[in-house]
């Protein structure tokens, strides 16, 4: 079980609880604005871009090469960027704060 907080582009704060599946799926099921997940989570669309809060970055592990490449589709990518369909929900993510990319 992990508590995950999304901050949307209009500064709405949404905290959700998940047990399994991807962070993208959790966000889409709960209509988190700005996370579309168009490709269904196969790292093909980059519509699930989030910035991980700096203090939480060690919770997520490394992004794969294809994820890093796909992130380049967006202009406002930085070192905290992740495609959240590639983040599996586990206890390790508990308390994480994700800023939805613009």
């Amino acid at each position: 079980m992990a508590k995950i907080t999304f901050i949307t582009s209009d500064d709405e704060k949404i905290t959700l609880e998940g047990t399994s599946g991807s962070v993208m799926a959790l966000a889409v099921e709960n209509n988190v604005k700005g996370i579309d997940g168009d490709c269904g989570g196969v790292c093909s669309c980059a519509t699930c871009h989030v910035h991980v809060a700096a203090e939480d970055i060690q919770k997520t592990g490394e992004a794969s090469e294809i994820e890093l490449d796909m992130l380049e589709l967006d202009d406002n990518t930085n070192e905290y960027s992740r495609l959240c369909c590639q983040l599996e929900i586990t206890d390790a993510l508990d308390g994480i704060v994700l800023q939805v990319a613009k």
């Binding site: 294809i66 796909m70 589709l73």
Partner: peptide, 10 residues
């Protein structure tokens, strides 16, 4: 080759 895909898109 996601890199080629991304550069191609741009």
């Amino acid at each position: 080759n996601a890199k080629a895909y991304v550069i191609g898109t741009k």
